[in-house]
Amino acid sequence: MPAVQNSPIESVPEFEFIDINGQKHHIRDYKGKVMLIHFWATWCAPCVVEFPKIIHLASDRPEIVVIALSSDISDEKILRFLEKNPERSSRFIVARDVKREITEGLFQTFKLPETFVISPSGLIVKKMVGDIDWDSKEIDNLLSSLKK
């Protein structure tokens, strides 16, 4: 089980991105919801293992929005990968971080996968590094505590 780290209060920075379907989003659009900003790539083995679990989590928990930002170099690779995981909630948004400016620049994320948990008020409450057991009691307690 990778490290689950407690964090002090820190606001999520503002950024916008275009999802894999070409739709533009702004982080502000999801204020008031529990957000998981998930950094991943199709070439990253632990990410591939973790991906179905996080899709499942988003389907199970209506209060959650997952923004999965990929570090892949092309959309095609992502789309091909997503074909293997077709049943995704509308609250599971997949996007490619084109120049990795959000991943490495804004969030200083160099090891994949990494996930930031954002509270409805826009605070970063946890950062998780590595393949997380999203079905664990710890995660359940954390997400339940953030529910408004």
């Binding site: 820190e10 920075p13 969030f107 200083q108 994320t109 160099f110 090891k111 970063i124």
Partner: peptide, 15 residues
């Protein structure tokens, strides 16, 4: 920050 996944938006500002 790079090797152990300790980066965050805060650390980006500090760097």
């Amino acid at each position: 920050l790079i090797n152990d996944g300790k980066g965050s938006p805060l650390s980006e500002q500090e760097l």
